[in-house]
Amino acid sequence: MTAVGSGRSGAAVVAEVLDARREQLAQQWADLPLFRTVYTSGRDAAVTAAHRLVDTLADVAHGERVEDTTVPALDRIRPHLAQTINARTRAGCSSPQFTAEVAELKTPLMAIVAQELTDEDRYSGLLAAAALMGTLRLVVMEILLNQGDDIIDRQRQQLLEVSTPIIKLWDRVIAVPLIGTLDSARTQVVMETLLDAIVDQHAAVAILDITGVPLVDTVVAQYLMKTAMAVRLMGAECVISGIRPQIAQTIVQLGIDLGDIKTRATLADALAWALEQAGARIASKE
């Protein structure tokens, strides 16, 4: 089915409609949940926001690239969309709900386009308008996805920090109990936190306790060696404690040479060694 058009592109005719019916469309959009629920302070603010969106879409249509989510014109509304998304998310709106609210903008636009255009332009105009709204939706989804990543990154970071407590065992003796799988992100955090703590507490001995680490393969061993080396470069001694029998056996069979890194079976043994270094001693009362 081909419509005989006026020779102008669908994008061009939509751009004209958006310019000519700017006010009408902005007023209608301002009443939809997307704007109404965010701009609670007053309808004027909602209308202003709706104007901004109409103008942006008109620019995109003038530029003919109605299907391109990367056109610079769209960058203008990205921060506003992100803010709107934030506000709606805080109010408990889910991502699918939000995209549905964005999709609602389409109906008034299509109605106006259909009404404004002559028969020869209507078909291509409606297609272009639909493409434009599809592009807007994609931009929204992009923002939603990125925000999701941000949230996950943030939670991950918090989890890493929470799970890396540095414990002061004694004057100038600190310990970090490592628990779970040591991946590169985690060891990076452990290393940074530990080195900071050595400076803050003028630590002379840092104990890495691996009682809670289920497995030491060559990658984990490499992490441990690097951390121990960094601790030493800071002028402190590093002791690895909590080496359980099954871990000791696998380390030996892998052929890993921990060099002159001090190791102790338990955290208590490591502490006893540290105290000895510091000139203190724990003796049982006779």
């Binding site: 289920p214 497995l215 393969d217 060559t218 990658v219 099954q246 871990i247 056996q249 696998t250 892998l254």
Partner: peptide
């Protein structure tokens, strides 16, 4: 011990 050996080999 046997589990740990096999899992470590698998990891490598």
């Amino acid at each position: 011990v046997e589990q740990t050996k096999l899992v470590t080999a698998a990891s490598e």
